[in-house]
Amino acid sequence: MRRAKLWHSLQTAGYTDIDFVGTQSDGGGCNPGYSYDFDHEGHGGFSATGIAANNQLPPWLSTARPDVVLMHLGTNDMWGGYIPLADKLNAFTKLIGQMRAQNAAMKIIVAQIIPISASACSTCPADVVALNNALPSWASGLGTSQSPIVLADLWTGYDAIADNVDGIHPNDTGFRKMAEAWYPVLAKVLGGSTPPTTTPPTTSPTTAPPAGTCTATYRVASQWADGFQGEVTVSNGSSSVSSGWTATFTFVNGQKVSQAWNATVTQPGATVTARNADWNGRVAAGGTATFGFLASSSGTNTTPATTCVLTTG
């Protein structure tokens, strides 16, 4: 499901020439309600150390021939706490070498992996944190200008109990969070240019809900020297299903949105207006919808007050 959601976010944002590749296919089995590319290289139950030791990656690479690899590995190396961190990182390093042997200009995105609950594996939470904490320096030491390694933080904001069905495997909320964490990093790796945007709706909502039925929560998901990733969650506090929503906020430090996903975003000046995508305007009573964006900043990044309006009927 996370691949379907990621694919849909890319398509919605204008990345329509992307081809997911791999020797595996889910055949559309996740049935998200929209079309997506079924190909992938996910192998349930495989470990990073096992893939590296058995040289399983090279034939997969030669068949799929990717230009960009998204790598969420390490979960199955956690069980029992008996595999040293150094062995996991050595396995990662070997896999990177095999990727570059197939394509010297391979772009590689490595996940700081999602958490595992202590109820599923008592030693795993601390080992996941240890791996994720080690990855920045590992990636920095191994990345090159021709074949960069960048990290996607799938751990922060992910709840090992609420976002997993069994403390290990994601539920639908977990899949959504994973896709949302992958997207901005992948978009940046794909070229850093702003993808084509769709024209926002020109008609105004015909039915306004009672005041106070919509609330919007703004947060900064990650931040760097000259920019940041933001996220806004729109909550339907009414007793009716919405047919659409609009969120609005005004920056006070000159921040400028460069791209967005899961919403159509416009910013003619300091004020940002986000309208639902064609597939996520329907929000059940008590439900939420979330969109994200990348924006520039010049140091100060004051959190803006955010409001929203629901359309019903």
Results as ranks from 00 to 15, higher is better:
2 R>N: 13
10 L>T: 05
11 Q>E: 15
11 Q>T: 08
12 T>F: 14
25 S>C: 09
26 D>I: 09
29 G>M: 07
30 C>R: 02
31 N>F: 01
32 P>H: 02
33 G>I: 01
37 D>E: 10
37 D>V: 03
39 D>Y: 12
42 G>F: 00
43 H>K: 01
58 P>K: 11
59 P>L: 10
61 L>N: 10
62 S>R: 06
66 P>G: 11
70 L>E: 00
84 P>G: 05
84 P>Q: 06
85 L>M: 13
86 A>I: 12
93 T>G: 14
104 A>N: 13
107 K>V: 02
111 A>M: 06
115 P>M: 00
120 A>M: 06
123 T>H: 13
128 V>W: 03
131 L>I: 13
131 L>S: 01
134 A>T: 09
138 W>Y: 03
142 L>S: 04
148 P>R: 05
156 T>Q: 12
157 G>I: 07
183 Y>H: 04
186 L>M: 02
189 V>N: 09
192 G>K: 11
195 P>M: 13
199 T>Y: 09
200 P>M: 01
204 S>E: 14
206 T>M: 08
213 T>N: 11
220 V>K: 10
220 V>F: 02
221 A>Q: 14
229 Q>T: 09
232 V>F: 07
234 V>T: 07
237 G>H: 11
248 T>P: 13
249 F>N: 01
263 A>D: 15
265 V>W: 00
270 A>W: 10
270 A>R: 05
272 V>E: 15
273 T>N: 05
277 A>S: 15
277 A>N: 14
286 G>T: 11
293 F>K: 00
296 S>N: 12
301 N>V: 12
310 L>R: 01
313 G>W: 10
